[in-house]
Structure formats: C-alpha cells, structure tokens
Design a protein around this nucleic acid. Structure first.
Lengths: 152, 152
DNA sequence: ATAATCTTTAGAGCTAACTCTAGGTCAAGT
DNA sequence: ACTTGACCTAGAGTTAGCTCTAAAGATTAT
C-alpha cells in the first residue's frame, strides 16, 4: 500500500533524485512522510506520476504541470481551467503527431534512397528509380514551397 | 539563388543567432561566405536545414545530427552508417508515435471526465457514466499493471 | 552621403531539467 | 553491536540548446 522512493524509482524509471526534484518543484504535494521522515508513496501518487509523465511526454514543461496541480489543489472553482488545459494539450498533441508523420515521410525517403544507392551505386539513380525521384520532389519540393509562402 | 542569414531565419523560423550556433556546432559546413564575410545560404543549405529540423524534431540531439553530417562529409564509405542511422531514427519515431497515442488516450479520458463533472457535478459520476469508469480502469489499470510487471 | 538596418565575431549569460555530493539518519541482517 | 544499504536535506554542478551583448563592418534606402 505504501512504496519507498526507491521502489517508485524502479516502477517509473525515474531516479530517486528526480522524484525529490519533482517534489521540490511542487509536482508531488501529496506524498506523505512517515515518522522518520521517509517518503511513502501511495498508489494514488503513482497515478499522479503517470499523469506527469503523460504531460511531460507531450511537451508540457514542469511549470505547466505545476500549474495544473495548483489548480487541482485549489478545488472545484478551477475545473474549467483544468479542462481547458487538457484541450489545449490535446490540440498540441495532434499537431505533434501530424509533424511526426511528415518527419516519417522524410526518413522513409532517406532510407529508400540510401538502400538504393548502397545496392546499385549513385550513378543514374534518378533514371533507375523515377518513383524515388518523384518522392523526393514531393517531400522536398512541398516543404520549400511552404517555407517560401510563409516568408513572402 | 543566395539568401542572407536573416532571410533564412524568416524562412525557417529559427533565429540568426541559432543559425550561427548551428554552424559553430558543425551542422552547416556547406554555407559559403561572400567577399565581405557575410554568409550566403544556397537552396541546398535550406535542404540541410530541413533535414536538421526533421532529425531534431524526432528527438535526435545536435551531436547526433553532427555525426550524420560528419559521415556525409567523409564520403561513400559511410553510406551504411548513414542508412543505419535513419533506420534507428525510424524505429525511435515509431515508438514515439505509439507513446503519443497512449498519451492521447489519457488526455481524451481527462477531457471526457472534466466535461462530465463540469456539466453535472462530481457526485455519482461513476454510476452516471459507466463507460467513463470503464475507460478509466482500462487506461489507468493497464498502466499500473505494466509498471508492476516491469518492476517485479 | 548618410542614416538605418543587417551582419560579423567572440564570448558571456540563460533556462530547463536534471544529476550529483556531502554529511548525516534510519532500518535490516548477522 | 555493527555493518550495509537505502534514505534524508541543502545546495552545488552539469548538459543541451539556445539567447544575448558589444563593438565593428557591410548593405540599403533616401
């Protein structure tokens, strides 16, 4: 029912140092201490850590996470802010995922390109692989266009 | 055909400071300078910046990007390393995307949860919304299980 | 021509998020 | 009782990736 900081470190993959740091930064205001001053983490604390991991993993800085926790501590009057925060985080997440898709296209192109060159050499690659050239033009050309529109 | 550092900054969204920093770190070994010492970026340099953005955006540190550029400069003997690098980056990217999907589930759950509570209050939410409770158990319970397996 | 704007370098400064150290306390095994 | 290992606090140190400054030279607009 209660976990030591070391056990939580193992469970979460964070170090004990990092857990203490998070606490110092106000991210774990729920963790209790026993009579000897040792931290005792509950299952609920593990839940908080999971949420922190989620927000951190979707690019929220620790300050933003602390803001959420402060809102939570402040009670029901902050429900709208908390909802709004998750909605914003969701839209950021959708953008991130779209961006990663685009990056994936470029990386897939590079892999196809290098495999072709390693297999058959650089000479005549565009004549040999018109579909690879088309791919390059699509990915590369599109990006340049976007950039130029942005700056124009 | 040639762009000043300020023009490139606008095109890419990076600052001129950052571009110089990248050059100093060895990420832009191709950028020429004109007779007065001013940098002149070519379209090919913009292509390199796009690639750098892609690798950075998929979590590669600048050091790793420099390694790729060093391999490129070293010539054809490093083709296999470069292919390997992109393959590793692709697998990291797939992991990232899977992770973001999981995070999305948690965030969607939070949004549904807060919307329900804001609309109708906290009391009796689990009786009122059994599917929300099931969602919570699925997301939350699954995570706890995984963590415990990992640490056991 | 001259003022405003850009660019140059070298190097200092900054922020986020850890990461570690020192010196001490606590708990479990022998 | 004693050793071993986990834990405590306060605070210093580290790393990545910028971000800014100062002083000087280059470019552009009027």
């Amino acid at each position: 029912m209660g976990y030591s900081i070391g056990q939580v470190a193992k469970k979460t993959g964070l170090t004990a140092h990092t857990l203490r740091y998070y606490e110092k930064e106000g991210l774990l205001p729920f963790v209790r201490k026993n009579g000897s001053g040792l931290r005792v983490f509950s299952d609920s604390d593990l839940g908080w850590l999971t949420l922190i991991e989620c927000l951190k993993g979707t690019g929220m800085p620790l300050k933003g996470i602390k803001q959420y926790i402060d809102w939570y501590m402040a009670g029901d009057s902050t429900l709208p802010q908390r909802l709004e925060m998750f909605k914003e985080q969701k839209s950021r997440l959708l953008e991130q995922m779209a961006q990663l898709q685009k990056h994936m296209e470029k990386i897939d192109y590079k892999i196809a390109y290098y495999e072709e060159i390693i297999a058959r050499g650089e000479q005549g690659i565009w004549e040999r692989c018109p579909e690879l050239k088309a791919e390059r033009d699509r990915i590369y050309g599109k990006m340049v266009e976007e950039k130029e529109q942005k700056s124009a």
